[in-house]
């Protein structure tokens, strides 16, 4: 029997714990877009948007939307005190120049060296699109990838070498999945935490490269977020 894995919300909740008070953070599409909802009330994170905002607050409520104040997914947002506007060039100066504390993106594949593939599925219809992903991959100070641990067919997404079109080389520092938290190091992938109910062996079984498993591996803390049913 397959052991239950975490929900996308639980992955986002675990990722939110990586972001300290006062940090400046860019969130990408997919699971990362869920993270803002899990920042604790006593923690202030200054969210960055590629279209030139630092210090985005919560989503705008009905009636307070302003079509000139939207995030990178076109969602109307609000501003925290101290928020600022700038050009798209300055926004990417912040991502590529390593000025943000954390960038969080979704992933299709991550290699054991931290190579990332996340912009195009081979054979997919349409033009594909890069957006800011390659700039972020090239220059982020600390890049976190949030994704499911395997494909829908239970194939590993953490691989020895990416086979999907690459976004960037040796750029990922931390991987947070529905099974584990892993750190990319010069020695290889270190298993930092496993999801409740899972063992390091469960994670290794669906991970292509050999994991470095320390003597003590923590358990992902996930209070107050609904588990899979």
């Amino acid at each position: 029997m397959t052991k239950p894995r975490l929900t996308r919300e639980q992955i986002a909740h675990r990722a939110a714990q990586e972001l300290p008070d006062g940090s400046c953070v860019n969130l990408g599409w997919g699971i990362p877009n869920l993270i803002a909802a899990y920042i604790p009330a006593d923690v202030t994170v200054y969210f960055h948007s590629e279209n030139g905002i630092l210090g985005m607050g919560s989503r705008a409520t009905p009636g307070e939307e302003d079509p000139d104040l939207v995030d990178a997914m076109k969602v109307p947002v609000t501003l925290l005190p101290g928020a600022c506007f700038f050009t798209q060039a300055d926004a990417h100066m912040m991502t590529r120049g390593g000025h943000l504390d954390f960038c969080v993106m979704g992933g299709l594949q991550v290699s054991e060296k931290g190579d990332l593939a996340n912009w195009k599925v081979p054979g997919a219809k349409g033009s594909g699109g890069i957006g800011g992903a390659m700039d972020i991959a090239a220059g982020a100070r600390h890049l976190i990838i949030c994704m499911e641990h395997t494909t829908k067919d239970n194939e590993p997404k953490i691989v020895k070498n990416c086979t999907y079109p690459l976004t960037g080389l040796e750029c990922v520092k931390t991987i947070i999945t529905d099974m584990a938290v892993l750190d990319v190091t010069s020695k290889g992938l270190v298993l930092r935490e496993v999801a409740p109910g899972l063992t390091p062996g469960d994670v290794q079984a669906v991970t292509e490269p050999k994991l470095i498993v320390p003597e003590s591996v923590g358990e992902m803390r996930l209070s107050n977020v609904a588990a899979a049913v």
Partner: peptide, 15 residues
């Protein structure tokens, strides 16, 4: 025809 350019590099090439 399409030339795909990373968003920040599109900015920097114009800059």
């Amino acid at each position: 025809e399409l030339e795909l350019v990373p968003q920040g590099i599109l900015c920097e090439r114009m800059r």
